[in-house]
């Protein structure tokens, strides 16, 4: 079962992402902020896709994506998609430059999220 890591400081968002993805046949791990996400993905090499919020305490999603880009994890096959209320061009460009594969603006449509994750996990 493909492992997906969702990093979001909102328990509600994590819950909803988990429900959508487990319903689609994925195993879902959770982290509550960027640092927690970095530690979790570093400890588990099986994580195939990460879903990152942008605004989070301690380390935001863009910084986390940049860290994963810098440490070579993305080049090793990890796919990142941003899931955020933000929709500004400069943030999107920054995420893209960091190697993110997609950008979804909250509130997300469950079928779109599932389709995006399936595509990245394939």
């Amino acid at each position: 079962m493909t492992k997906i890591l969702v990093v979001d400081d909102s328990a509600t968002m994590r819950q909803q992402v988990r429900q959508v993805l487990t319903g689609g046949g994925f195993e879902v791990l959770e982290a509550v902020d960027g640092q927690d996400g970095l530690a979790t993905v570093t400890a588990d090499e099986d994580v195939k896709v990460m879903i990152l919020d942008v605004n989070m305490p301690r380390m935001n999603g863009i910084e986390l994506a940049e860290a994963l880009h810098a440490n070579g994890r993305m080049a090793a096959g990890l796919n990142v998609v941003m899931l955020t209320t933000e929709g500004h061009a400069e943030l999107i460009a920054r995420a893209k430059a960091a190697g993110a594969k997609g950008w979804i603006v909250k509130p997300f449509k469950p079928d779109l999220l599932l389709a995006a994750v399936k595509k990245m996990a394939a």
Partner: peptide, 25 residues
Amino acid sequence: ATDRFLSEKLGGRTASMDAGSMTMF
């Protein structure tokens, strides 16, 4: 509602994507 009430007025930036939308790079 989030679009109307929660648009990022604080930062003064212009959103390029709407709520619920998705783009794959």
